[in-house]
Design a protein around this nucleic acid. Structure first.
Length: 489
RNA sequence: GGCCCCAUCGUCUAGCCCGGCCUAGGACACAAGGUUUUCAUCCUUGCGACAGGGGUUCGAAUCCCCUUGGGGUCACCA
């Protein structure tokens, strides 16, 4: 009988939630949820210099926003509380003491200067850069004596041999212990280091599977050795391929946005973000690209994760975002777009609330042109511009000027519309009648519609012109048409 | 540089573990065409890859070796 699956995501609150971290969390979460396991969250705040409460809050919020929930964690508690690493320090000291008592760890009194010299020497000699184990050979007595008067760190005494572990992404991994240095477990200020506490906590929290970024692969032998020293069950691992920038290096701010927050602020639908992140290193089958979180949970398996790193393809991400927007129910889409329009200062939420029909009509008409919620801002800006001297798109204006009788056409339409709208304005009806009227004049459709679209919106592309007239209102539309006729002369 | 990891269209990937169904499938991007009042959407078509070299085998994208290329990591950070 296998023990129940327990996985965790352990971010360190030293920055915003990275998209790579978000993907790691997602995969861990999906793995647990798909198998009736537990997903826990633990804050790795052992570096007091760089950890902040603000980042921690932002990370938790980001995870929740994505739809990730945890069974145990800093804010929800659990049987293995606390879930802040910093608060578990007494426990870590116990573990360190135990190891020290067993002779599996030793005090190291080497000064930073000596260490620096050592690595300089090793570099010059083109040797492996590692601690040379000088203090490992100190007698117990000398160690005790010096400990009373000198500062020291505690190093793990790496045994001879080799270390193996199971990685579900890469298969069986083997490292020669000779390649693993006697790394620092406890700093000179008495605080334990990451590689040490992560194992203590994972043992205490009964973590069964550790899925994390590939950059941790080389840490794994150190950690496995620790599990063995404690005679604890070694968890199964899974090192996820790195998310790469367009330079093929680890995704960094240099080549694009790295924080989940950035994409949220730019108006990407969260379902698209989740979907896209999963596509980096995993696929549901070879065919489908768009899938739901439920399907992810149902189908995700660590064994299907790709080994090679994945370049973050913004083009595909943008397309996927548009795909989600096109399939979102209109009401939801309108609700999601609203904050961006409000934030841009186009309207207040009260104003939107007062014109729901109008608002929904615009959102519905523009949706196929949106890739993010924020795109709507730019798309509807023209509606809020003054009716006089509306900014014309240069190419649009050039195109409109190509029509010989543009001014006469526009003026004639102005007269027709003014007359026609006296009995009220219904876009569908007016559209039909306008087309008949244009044909009756012996005109080609673009002869009117091209300059008209420019007159109303300043753009050469966009929604149906009769919808635009409806949104602007007949009065303002007439004003714009008259203004354009004057300017295009 | 040491150690470790990786290698299918430009990009994300299916296929690889358990060789034949692969004249290598899908998606994005790109190109062409169609629909449309324009843009967009949508539809159709096209372009386009098993890094190279050796083995093993009747047969290799799939197994083995080498080369090349790329990446990760070498902290009293996590």
């Amino acid at each position: 009988m296998n023990s129940p699956i327990r996985v965790r995501f352990a971010p360190s609150p030293t920055g915003k939630l990275h998209v790579g971290g978000a993907r790691t969390a997602l995969f861990n979460w999906a793995y647990a949820r798909g198998r009736g396991g537990k997903f826990l969250l633990r804050i790795e705040d052992t570096d007091p210099e760089r950890s902040t409460k603000e980042f921690e809050t932002a990370i938790l919020e980001g995870l929740r926003w994505l739809g990730i929930d945890w069974d145990e964690g800093p804010d929800v508690g659990g049987p293995h509380a606390p879930y802040h690493q910093r608060l578990r320090i007494e426990r870590h000291r116990e573990y360190a003491q135990k190891l020290f008592g067993m002779g599996r760890a030793y005090r190291c009194f080497c000064s930073r200067e000596r260490l620096e010299e050592l690595s300089k020497r090793q570099e010059a000699a083109k040797e492996r850069l590692a601690y040379d184990g000088l203090c490992r050979r100190l007698s117990k007595e000398e160690s005790e004596r010096r400990a009373a008067v000198e500062p020291f760190v505690v190093r793990f005494a790496v045994p001879a041999g080799e270390t193996r572990f199971l990685d579900h992404v890469r298969g069986e991994c083997v490292f020669q212990n000779a390649e693993v240095e006697d790394w620092v477990m406890v700093r000179s200020d008495g605080n334990p280091t990451y590689n040490f506490v992560v194992v203590c906590d994972d043992i205490d929290m009964e973590i069964t599977h550790v899925f994390r970024g590939e950059e941790h692969l080389v840490n794994t032998p150190k950690q496995v050795l620790l599990y063995k020293a404690f005679e604890a069950k070694v968890p199964e691992f899974g090192h996820l391929p790195l998310m790469l920038g367009t330079d093929k290096k680890k995704l960094s701010k240099r080549t694009g946005d790295t924080a989940l927050q950035d994409y949220r602020d730019k108006g990407y639908p969260k379902a698209a973000i989740v979907n896209f992140l999963c596509l980096q290193g995993w696929s549901i089958d070879g065919e489908r690209v768009v899938f739901s979180v439920d399907e992810l949970v149902q189908r995700f398996d660590i064994k299907d994760v790709q080994k090679a790193g994945a370049i973050f393809d913004l083009d595909k991400f943008v397309w996927l975002a548009g795909e989600y927007i096109r399939h979102e129910p209109l009401e939801a889409l309108a609700v999601n777009c609203a904050p961006f329009v409000v934030q841009a200062g186009l309207m207040t939420s009260e104003q939107i609330g007062a014109r729901v029909e109008w608002w929904l009509s615009i959102v519905g008409a523009e949706r196929e042109r949106l890739r993010t919620y924020a795109d709507l801002v730019g798309r509807m800006q023209y509606l809020f511009a003054p009716d006089e001297n509306l900014a014309f798109d240069a190419a649009g204006e050039a195109a409109a000027r190509k029509h010989e009788n543009r001014v006469a056409t526009l003026s004639a339409f102005h007269g027709w519309l003014a007359e026609r709208a006296k009995s009220g304005y219904d876009p569908a009806k007016v559209r039909d009648e306008a087309k008949q009227w244009v044909a009756a004049q012996g005109w080609k459709i673009p002869q009117l519609f091209q300059p008209l679209r420019l007159a109303l919106s300043g753009q050469m592309g966009g929604p149906d012109v009769f919808d635009m007239i409806g949104w602007l209102g007949v009065e303002r539309s007439l004003a714009r048409i008259a203004d354009a006729a004057r300017r295009l002369a």
